[in-house]
Design a protein around this nucleic acid. Structure first.
Lengths: 241, 241, 241, 241
DNA sequence: GATGAATGAGCTTTCATTCAT
DNA sequence: AATGAATGAAAGCTCATTCAT
């Protein structure tokens, strides 16, 4: 009768207990979600039929409508999940240890890993961005949220590393994200791992430079050195030659 | 029975009347092409029906099959046209006058213009890349060609500016293209012109830095200064502080 | 496994707790019945889905199968109830007090009330008649029974009033019922209360005339005046001018 | 591309000429219309699937969408056609020759014929009235128009017969239509031809009475007898005993 | 008694494509 | 070259019904 909200209702009494049938329900919901993520990422939303998804998930068509109400609803759920995973990837790549230069370097490796090994994430987000933001406001809202959180994570990470938050930092983070997206797109086309390495190296150099100069500007702005004085400025063999 | 080559056939008899028919034919072919570009860019290939395109073009459905043989054929034609226009845009942005720094700056303006005022170009290319490279080799080939030519144009342009062609230059050009794509994607989501300005400024700084250091490396590599000695190294107030 | 007869089964053990379950059961049965009556009357049987009914009743879908075995069974129950209510309405309108003319007048008011204030009754009966008598014999049987009882009630009422039961009386009663149905249909279309008033006034005049002439014929048939001589013939200022 | 308006376009030059293919098109359109009328009348709109109609018409499913745009559109076309036929039936029954009493009598025969031999007309109109006026304003509009034209035809016919148009005449006509509808409904249930005869006879008596008294009232209203003086008042052996 | 989930047939509609004119 | 009609597969979705819990 009214699905979609069954996760909120506790089944009479025992809250942790899910009555086998419900457990099976969650399992098929999950299969659908996984299959849909795969298919939407591979062929795009429009080009994927519900039958495609169900075949892949091993579930009958009407189950989609029980669990997600519509194809659009399935997409929304997929997007929500994927978005979370993608942000988690970004956050994980930011939370590194070591001196600033090393942290950045490891972050780049983390992002490269996203591009190379989790292509479904980025494919899905990007193709939804291109395919569906024109007509579906909800999809757009999800994507804006995703992007904002990823940028914030990056901004925070950099700010933590350099010990200050200079004004242009958000733009730098946004440019980093953009480059990540663009590199991914290019990699989708060429699938040349060596080129991928070179581009990430080049991107790293650029980011180091941008962050360093932002940092220096910020230092120059307050020469008393109160903020961030406890941290060494990011050392960069190339930028400050 | 054998369309697609009607441009080669000379029509028998009265040239005045025939050329009118041919002209009409070209006109509807053109309407279709324009409408298809719009629609494919806006909603993606799969989500656009031939009816959508024809409604937009004000042409009957069967005309598509006369002029382009199939939906796929229509896409190929659209892609060919769009690709040419996009490369032309890149080339035009590279062919600037003035001192190196100024040329780069103008090139950036040119690219920004592509992002802001010709979104259909990029949307179409990117969404075809995401939507169709999995299944359609021809589309992929077209896109690889487009990308290679754009990168060559950029590489050549930079090489001309700095008077040398250091080994990493292609990668820098590729990263520039990637960033352009990424910025475009982000702009599709946010439509924030001020942010677009900031990102392009940041990108310009990064590119100047990358090119400068490439140039410097190249200089260091051949200290006799034979190559490019007739040119001033790109001046950058920030990179060589 | 064998519902539908749960009203006959006495539940074992604690009567307090059981009666609570039973009461709840009756309550949802009732909600379903009410909702189904509304929905079937409004949109017809075929156009109403079990989900529609359940949404309206605030009950889960499977409850329908517990209480009524099938959609068809739900309809049967609805029809039974509605039919009873409708016949009760007719009977009530017939059982009036006062002199013959007054009784008829009041009966008309009662029928008009049915048309205006209990439209679901008539809508349901009529649409079932049109929608389902082709394929479903049971529905047809119910409706025939309903109609016969209503006609009998009318016939009896008139016979009581005029003190005799002339041969054509049943037809007059049937025509009265038919007119009632037709007026109802028209009212469904126009929803014009003033027109409804006029039509009922006109109908009343016609019925008075028909009954009067039936009565007169019957009198003429037995000139000794034994039957019904204790009653004044229905007075009608227009018919016997 | 844009069907539905092909009837307005003349095919280049020759206006009467329909190019075989178009003629075939009109033929399938017609088959669909006929089949849909049958099926909708028999099973109701909702209970009839497009497949049902197409099977009956011997036409493929998508043709419905070419000719009528949707199931709703098909209904609209069916309704328009049926309505016209039904009004024509009423009009034909009114246009009779002979003295007033005879004309009425023949009109009743005509209406009876509609009830008995063209049941699809009435079934369709009535069931659409019950099934679809709640949700579809267009259907309602069509039906109101139909009803109004039928009532006008009756009113005009009676007015012509009695040589005047007394104020209550429209109501009498509406009641006559209502009775016709109600009798039809009852006949759908019982299919008893003898009863049908009796009811029409009874209805005729009632109508004669109502019209006569309307006429007499009108005469009393203008005792100079200018209007309608050239016509004998309708003679009725029963009403003016 | 009630519930959440499943099931598969069938629904209306859209689609790319074909074809005779 | 263009058009109106046809075609059939497949799309997204709804439905009545069943079933284990």
């Amino acid at each position: 009768m009214c699905p979609m909200d069954h996760e909120k209702r506790s089944h009479r009494g025992a809250p942790g207990k899910v009555s086998k049938r419900v457990a099976q329900g969650l399992r098929s919901r999950d299969s659908l979600l996984r299959a849909a993520t795969r298919q939407f990422a591979e062929r795009g939303f429009s080009a994927t039929s519900i039958d495609d998804v169900c075949r892949d998930a091993g579930v009958v068509k009407s189950a989609v409508y029980w669990h997600f109400e519509s194809k659009e609803g399935l997409l929304a759920a997929v997007l929500e999940e994927t978005a979370t995973a993608w942000i988690d990837g970004i956050v994980a790549s930011v939370q590194q240890t070591g001196d600033p230069r090393e942290r950045l370097s490891r972050a780049m490796v983390g992002m490269r890993d996203l591009v190379e090994n989790r292509p479904a994430l980025l494919r899905l987000l990007q193709s939804m961005l291109l395919e569906r933001t024109g007509e579906n406001a909800e999809t757009r809202a999800v994507l804006v949220r995703v992007f904002d959180r990823a940028r914030s994570a990056l901004t925070d990470g950099i700010a933590e590393v350099i010990g200050s938050r200079p004004p242009g930092l958000e733009t730098t983070a946004a440019l980093l994200l953009a480059s990540l997206d663009g590199i991914f797109l290019q990699h989708q086309l060429r699938r040349d791992v060596a080129e991928l390495d070179r581009m990430f190296a080049e991107l790293e150099r650029a980011i180091v430079f941008l962050v360093t100069s932002l940092f220096n500007e910020a230092q120059r702005g307050r020469p008393d050195g109160t903020a961030g004085a406890d941290r060494t400025p990011p050392a960069d063999g190339e930028a400050d030659k």
